Each structure stands twice: as C-alpha cells, then as structure tokens.
Simulated scan of single mutants.
Amino acid sequence: MTCLVTGFPSKIAALQFEWAWQNTHLTRHIAPDTRLTQAKSTVRISPKSGRARKRTARPRMCLTDKLANLHLLLRASSFERWPLKVIFYAEDIHRVWVKLTSQQIEKLRPGIEVNFDDSSKFSAAGELDEPVAPKGIHALDVGYTGFKERLERSKITFESADWLHCAICHKGLSSGGALTLVCPDEDCAALTHIECLSARFLQAGSNREAIVPTSGNCPGCATKLQWVDLVKELSLRMRGEKEVNAIFKKRRRTKKQADAAAADEASEESAEDEEMDDAIPQDDWHELPESSDVDIDEPVMRSDPSPALKSKAFKRPAPATSYSKPVIEDSDWDKAEVLA
C-alpha cells in the first residue's frame, strides 16, 4: 500500500470515490472539458450474432496521471467539502505528489489533510522496530471502536436526563436522541439540534453557498468539532445497531491467550501452595516410626492391595483347621433275619 484516502462519511461514499478515481474518463463528478484523460470507444463485432457493440476502453495511465486525477477529484464540488485525508506510505510516491501539487495553480481546500506516514520504514540496523502500538494501515479505525466511550456517554445522557434542550435554540429535544448531536468533550454536556448546529457552522464559515458544514466550535465549551464525527456518532446511535453490537461484544480469547491465562493460574496456585506450606510450623509434624520398630503382628493398612506390593512378613498365619475322625455307629442290619 503506497497511498490511502480516508475520512469518508459512509461506505457508499467511499465506493463512489473509488469508482470515480478508477474511471476518471467516465465519471460525472468531473466536467468533460476538465478531464485529464478522455474516453476511447472501440467497436467489436460479435461472432455469434454479427452485431457491432461499442465499448469504452479504459485508457492507460502512469503514476503521475493517477495522482493528477486524485488531485482533480479532491477539488471537485462533490468531494471538496468532505473531511478527507490522504496518507502516503511510500517516500518516492510522496515526492511525486509534492512535485505535482507544487505545479498546480488550484490548491486543495485547507480542510483536506495530506500526510506522509514513515512508521513502517526500516531502522538503521535493517530490522523493523518492535511495534508498541498499531502503525500504518493497522492504526486506522475501520470498526468504529473509537466511538465506544461516546456512545456510552450519550446513552447515559438520554436515559438519566429528565428534560433535554438544545444549547442554541433552547427548545426541547427528542428523548430518544433522534436528530440530536452530542458534544464529544467529556466535560461538556451540550446537546443541539442537527439543523441548529449546521446553520451555526455554516454562518461561521467562509463559504456562504455551502450546504454541508465541515467544522465549527461547540456552543457549550467552544471546542473545535468536526462535522463528520458528530454525524457518525448520530448515525451509529440511531441506525447502526449491528455495528454498535459489534463494538460492545466481548472478544473471545484465542488459543494462545487461553494457554497463557492457564499458565498464569497454575503459577498462582503453586505460589499459594508454597505459602501454605511455609505457614505450617514444623513442630506440628508427627514423627513416624522407623521400619524396624513396626510390630509384625499388627495389621498394616495399605492403599494399594495389589499382591505385588504385599510383603510376606506382614502376612498373618492362617488359623489351623482341626479334623476329627468319623464315627460309625452300629447298623441295624445285624439284627435282620436271614430268609432261606
């Protein structure tokens, strides 16, 4: 990634700008007489039907042409009032941009920022510095996580307040927060109608013909506010239920984090066991008799009754069984008469 344009108010707006940048010879955001590249039509005959079809071929553009078209789009009336930011990650591309913009007569609006991010450059040793915080593209907030605290404060404000009023017109506001803007400053509790704050920002601006404001000062704390940030918070609060649930959803721990947590718990348990062993005084331990002092006649209880662990010395002799001689009584047959 060498160049990135951010700060669009919505995904649809970003897609519109992307298509316009890729098709500057067709986009309606640029007047035909000011286009740097013109459309070229080609005729192709279908081999099946034999009909002629006209197609517009995309002209080939070099790096300078692409940057020139970007500068032209940023000056277009459709995008010039958006709080866009252009970030360059390659030093050679940034040098081409600086050289190109220095030759342009028309300059960009002051609200559009153009910066060069050198956080991904190699160190003098030839290795990347250890990242303490996300850098480069990874530092971009693409999931609205930066609005989490603001959404929490807005929810508490609308639920706890008995009566809400606008800080400009001093009229009542909707209890649900519809069409109500909230100041992002933690020490400020100013609430305004979106129409009231928009009119105030436009009156303080230099362009009287503008329809959408870009920035202005808060009527409560006079803090410099960006219009896109206020509208994003309002859109998330009113129509971004799916995005808000994703922000407040608890992240599941990965396997690596779970293994690390289990290792920490095991180390804590072992430390507690060592502390308990150290807390028991040595005098409380009972002295066990030596093996020679054990009486053989006394039964010894073992936890494992397997024959391999039984000792012959501890076996008790089996009791002797006495067998008496059988006694045969006189039979009654001797008194029987013999018949001839």
Rank of each mutant, 00 (worst) to 15 (best):
E127W: 11
L128Y: 11
D129R: 07
D129Q: 06
D129E: 13
D129Y: 01
E130V: 12
E130C: 05
E130G: 07
P131C: 02
P131G: 06
P131S: 03
P131Q: 09
P131R: 08
V132Y: 10
V132K: 12
V132S: 09
A133G: 02
P134I: 03
P134A: 12
P134L: 10
K135P: 01
G136V: 14
H138N: 07
H138E: 13
A139S: 14
L140Y: 13
L140P: 13
D141V: 04
D141R: 02
V142Y: 12
V142R: 12
G143H: 15
G143L: 15
Y144K: 08
T145W: 13
T145E: 15
G146V: 07
G146F: 06
F147P: 01
E149L: 11
R150N: 01
L151K: 06
L151R: 09
L151H: 11
E152H: 08
R153E: 00
S154T: 13
S154G: 14
K155V: 10
K155I: 05
K155M: 08
K155T: 14
I156L: 06
I156K: 08
I156E: 09
T157Q: 13
E159M: 11
E159H: 03
S160D: 01
S160A: 00
A161P: 00
A161Y: 06
D162A: 00
W163T: 07
W163D: 07
L164W: 03
H165V: 10
H165F: 07
H165D: 01
C166Y: 07
C166M: 04
A167K: 00
A167W: 00
A167Y: 00
A167D: 00
I168N: 02
I168G: 05
I168P: 03
I168F: 08
C169I: 09
H170C: 12
K171Q: 12
K171N: 11
K171A: 10
G172I: 03
G172W: 01
G172P: 02
L173D: 04
L173N: 02
S174C: 03
S175N: 06
S175H: 09
S175F: 07
G176F: 13
G177Q: 08
G177F: 05
L179I: 01
L179H: 06
T180V: 14
L181T: 05
V182I: 07
V182A: 01
C183N: 04
P184A: 10
P184L: 06
P184V: 11
P184R: 05
D185S: 15
D185Y: 08
D185Q: 14
E186R: 07
E186V: 11
E186L: 07
A189P: 02
A189Y: 04
